[in-house]
Nucleic acid binder design. Sequence first.
DNA 1: CCAGACGTTGTT
DNA 2: GTCTGG
DNA 3: CCAGACGTTGTT
DNA 4: GTCTGG
Length: 228
Amino acid sequence: MLLAERFDVDEIATEAHQPDYNVAPRASVYGIVERMPGARVLESLRWGLVPSWAKDTKIGDRMINARAETLAEKPAYKHAFARRRCILPADGFYEWRLQPRQGARKAHKQPMFIHRRDGDPLAFAGLWETWCDPSDADGPWVASCVIVTTRPNEMLEPIHDRMPVVLGEDAWSTWLDPENHDLCRLAPLLVPAPSEWLEAYPVSTRVNKASSNGPDLVDPIEPETLFQ
DNA sequence: CCAGACGTTGTT
DNA sequence: GTCTGG
DNA sequence: CCAGACGTTGTT
DNA sequence: GTCTGG
């Protein structure tokens, strides 16, 4: 499998499924994790971190982004940041650019697709946790994750004021190593990716609807249809 | 001490 | 579990 | 993030 | 306006 090769995964702990182009919170995403140092496993993770102490999974619905600036202090992320960092691979991500329209009182929100220029998948920095219902000890374990965000790089700045942390290949081992507790080696990774890595282009507003999906969502749209 | 939250983005 | 607010 | 709902009683 | 669901 392509992802497993690209991320040098040793074990695939999840069945392959079709890629999602419009992932919503609570959906499953791929994650690369190391429970043991150096042993990379491709897992299926629910997007929206459910901390181990949660009474139910509801809390995960709003734990979809974690600010890099405060990761180490937030009760909900502290443990995962210390021991359960992961990589969340993605073809790209969407941001909505406010685009004032002549004669319109409301600005148009133009969805943009951001991806790597070299065509490789992005490696989002993420955190993950496992949870099991405290009222049902025999119930299933739920593995969940959260995407780490930071300030935007130069290229994204006109589009949005935050962006996911995108790790370069040279940072993967340091980030994934569960025995690395050295903040001085982790903190420098949580910075905006170089603008040169990325490209942004406008896509159809069909992506606004969570039920829309499929590869055509990332098709570039013509400038004429920018202002519909 | 106990109770209650535990998060982010964007918009007004 | 752990932090904050009262 | 956007889209879409925005409610209760009583029954299974 | 604000919350929930995807």
